[in-house]
């Protein structure tokens, strides 16, 4: 008999009483102040949500109008002539993508090299000023970059684009029609306002964005792996190639895609440089092109009411492209090893 020991059943409820082990609801009992606070803040959040959904909905509604008025050809047709009420934005989409790709080709290497220099090569007291310098570049308004580009950079850059078309003109995208070898300055007209020049400028503008994302991931490359490489007798560049860049792959791609999104939407700098040309073309060195945002900015003034929907839809297409690119960028950054510490 175990009388001296506690009977474990002593404190149990008598048989017949069902004791439910259900969780009880706990009322936080918010005071009046908090209720108001949460209500207000939630209200603001909802207002912003509604506002943005309204914008999205409005744009979608306009898109259906456009589909009504112009059909699917709006998206793939190649004749764009608002004066004749012909809205087919394929050549403009092409121009947008071309400018963005050239911008990437220019901006990606510069951003990568700048990010590597800042994190790996710069002496520590130079790091902060260098970062400030790159961020300052981001702060310069695009209208000012555009003004500098069209009045200073373009006149010099066309010498380079001419050289490329003279020597590599047998490749279709580098070909330029017209008298490009003229001794006097008449050759210039063929090169001014091209995709290449616009892409060059936009490329310079997107460097700070890509650079800061890349910089963020390079900083996180683990010291232990770096030391392993050095201990094997590696040079600095060997270490960067084997440790830093593979580690930072997610950030490199993500940062580049974010930059791409920005390049797609750049308006004023492109507007200041390009000469308007709405025919589809792949010759990137030849003057004349159009991008969606530049088109909207320059043409809407001539738009009568019925055509507004078309412009809005074109802008909506651009919006969707940018969202898609940004989402892919975020995925790349978040899923990589380096993604954890970086905010995209």
């Amino acid at each position: 008999m175990t009388l001296l020991l506690d009977d474990p059943t002593e404190d149990a409820p008598a048989e017949g009483v069902q004791e439910q082990d259900a969780p009880r609801s706990v009322d936080p009992g918010l005071g009046r102040v908090d209720k108001t606070f949460r209500f207000t803040v939630r209200g603001i959040g909802m207002f912003v949500l509604v506002m943005t959904v309204a914008i999205g909905g409005f744009l979608g509604w306009q898109a259906t109008h456009t589909y009504h008025d112009y059909g699917l050809k709006f998206f793939y047709g190649t004749t764009f002539d608002p004066s004749r009420n012909l809205f087919q934005i394929a050549p403009i989409l092409l121009g947008t993508v071309e400018v963005a790709l050239v911008a990437l080709a220019v901006g990606f290497p510069i951003a990568l090299m700048t990010a590597l220099f800042i994190t790996e090569y710069a002496p520590s007291r130079l790091k902060s000023p260098l970062i400030a310098l790159v961020d300052m570049m981001a702060a310069v308004p695009s209208v000012i970059v555009g003004v500098w580009a069209v009045k200073w950079l373009q006149d010099r850059a066309i010498f380079t684009t001419r050289w490329i078309s003279q020597n590599l003109g047998w490749i279709p995208i580098f070909h330029v029609d017209g008298d490009i070898d003229a001794a006097s300055n008449t050759w210039q007209i063929n090169f001014i306002g091209s995709v290449a020049i616009a892409g060059l400028v936009v490329g310079l503008m997107i460097v700070p964005l890509a650079c800061s994302v890349m910089r963020g991931v390079f900083d996180l490359a683990p010291l232990s792996e770096r030391e392993a490489a050095y201990a094997l007798g590696s040079t600095k560049w060997g270490m960067i190639r084997t440790v830093v860049i593979p580690f930072g792959r997610g950030g490199i791609i993500g940062g580049t895609m974010l930059a791409l999104g920005r390049a797609l939407g750049e308006t004023v700098a492109v507007l200041l440089i390009i000469t308007n040309d709405d025919t589809p073309k792949i010759q990137v060195l030849s003057g004349g092109t159009d991008t969606i945002s530049a088109m909207i900015a320059s043409q809407f003034g001539n738009a009568h009411q019925g055509q507004l929907a078309a412009y809005l839809t074109a802008g909506f297409v651009l919006f969707v492209m940018t969202i898609a690119v940004n989402t892919v960028a975020a995925i790349f950054v978040n899923r990589s090893r380096s993604g954890a510490g970086v905010d995209v």
Binding site: G265, I292, S293
Partner: peptide, 9 residues
């Protein structure tokens, strides 16, 4: 998503 809105739009 809205940060991706092109300013012209």
């Amino acid at each position: 998503a809205m940060t991706a809105l092109p300013d012209i739009l």
